[in-house]
Structure formats: C-alpha cells, structure tokens
Lab assay of single mutants.
Amino acid sequence: RGFLEKAAVKKMAKAIMADPNKADEVYKKWADKGYTLTQMSNFLKSKTAGKYDRVYNGYVIHLD
C-alpha cells in the first residue's frame, strides 16, 4: 500500500510541476487524506536533491 501511495503522490507532484495551477486542488486532496509533512517528505524523496522541494514547500504553506 505504501508503495502505491508513494507512486501516486509522485505522479501528482509531477503534475504540479508541469502545471502549477493544479497545486491547490492536489494539496487539498493530500490534506483530506491526512498526509503529514513527514509522510510527504518520505513520499517525495528523490535521487535528485531538491527535485520536489517546490511541491513540498507549497504543501507546507497549504497546511499552515
């Protein structure tokens, strides 16, 4: 289950990176699912340092 969630989160993160207008909708879905910042950090780990920082930081702001 965790692997599928991670894959889904990364897919949506890539969608945000391609079209930032989708961010609020995606952040709301993640918040509704109760994803914590720790979970998001783990889901968005990448071999490329900083690749998903913008998405993660946007989610931090959304939760605030």
Rank of each mutant, 00 (worst) to 15 (best):
K28E: 07
R54I: 11
K47A: 09
V9S: 01
K6D: 06
D24L: 12
A23Q: 05
D53M: 07
D32N: 10
G58D: 05
Y27A: 00
M40G: 01
E5F: 06
A15D: 07
L37Y: 04
A15V: 11
I16D: 00
M12R: 04
V55I: 11
D32P: 00
A18S: 11
D19L: 04
D64L: 15
L4N: 12
G50P: 04
N57F: 13
T38H: 11
L63V: 05
K45Y: 09
L63F: 04
T48M: 08
N21C: 15
G50D: 06
Q39Y: 03
A13D: 00
A18T: 09
Y27F: 08
G2W: 15
K29T: 13
D19K: 05
A18K: 12
T36V: 03
G58W: 03
Q39L: 06
G34H: 07
K45E: 11
K45R: 11
V60Y: 05
T48Y: 08
H62I: 03
G50R: 06
Q39T: 07
G50F: 06
D24T: 12
K33Q: 12
Y27R: 00
L4C: 15
A15E: 13
K22G: 06
D19N: 09
G58C: 05
L44P: 01
L44A: 00
K47V: 07
D53G: 04
M40I: 15
V26Q: 04
K51R: 07
S41Q: 14
T38I: 12
I16S: 02
T36K: 03
N21Q: 10
K22D: 04
N57P: 02
A8H: 12
M17C: 09
Q39P: 01
K51C: 07
E25F: 09
T36Q: 03
T36C: 05
S41V: 09
V26R: 02
D64H: 13
A15M: 13
V55Y: 02
L37I: 09
T38W: 11
V9Y: 02
M12C: 14
K51H: 06
L37N: 04
Y56E: 02
V60F: 06
K6Q: 11
V55F: 03
K29H: 14
S46H: 07
G34Y: 03
K29L: 14
S41H: 13
A13P: 00
E5P: 05
A13E: 00
K11F: 08
T38P: 10
I61Y: 09
W30L: 02
K33I: 12
D32T: 10
Y56L: 14
W30I: 00
A49D: 12
A18F: 08
G50A: 05
I16F: 01
R54N: 13
S46M: 05
A13T: 01
V26G: 03
V9E: 01
L63C: 07
D24Q: 13
K14V: 07
Y35S: 00
G50C: 08
A13Y: 02
K11C: 15
N57T: 09
Y59I: 02
A18Y: 08
Y52V: 02
D24S: 10
W30N: 00
A31W: 06
V60T: 06
K10W: 07
D64R: 15
M40Y: 00
M12V: 04
L63E: 02
D24I: 10
A15I: 12
A8R: 14
V55D: 00
L63I: 07
Y27L: 01
D64A: 15
M40W: 04
Y59R: 00
L44N: 00
L63Q: 04
Y35P: 00
A23D: 03
T48C: 12
K22Y: 07
A7S: 10
V9N: 02
Q39G: 03
K11M: 10
T38D: 12
A7R: 15
K6N: 07
K10L: 14
M12F: 04
R1Q: 14
W30F: 03
N21W: 10
K45L: 10
K11E: 08
A31F: 08
N57G: 07
T38R: 11
V60L: 09
F3G: 13
A8K: 14
Y52L: 03
A23H: 05
A31H: 13
M12W: 07
R1Y: 07
K29P: 00
F43R: 02
E5A: 09
D32Q: 13
E5R: 08
S46T: 08
I61S: 12
M12I: 04
V26Y: 08
D53E: 09
H62W: 15
W30K: 00
G34F: 04
K28L: 06
D64I: 15
V9H: 01
K45M: 11
K11T: 07
R1I: 14
K6V: 11
R1D: 12
L44E: 00
A8S: 10
E25A: 11
E5I: 12
A49T: 10
N57C: 15
S46L: 05
D64W: 11
K10Y: 05
V26M: 08
F43L: 08
G2P: 11
H62A: 06
N42F: 12
W30Q: 00
G50M: 05
K47Y: 06
I16Q: 00
N42H: 12
A13Q: 01
E25V: 09
L4F: 13
Q39F: 04
Y59S: 00
K45N: 09
K10M: 11
K22S: 08
R1S: 14
L63K: 03
S46I: 06
L37T: 08
P20C: 10
N42P: 01
A49K: 13
A15Q: 12
A8P: 03
R54E: 15
Y35E: 00
T48A: 08
G2E: 14
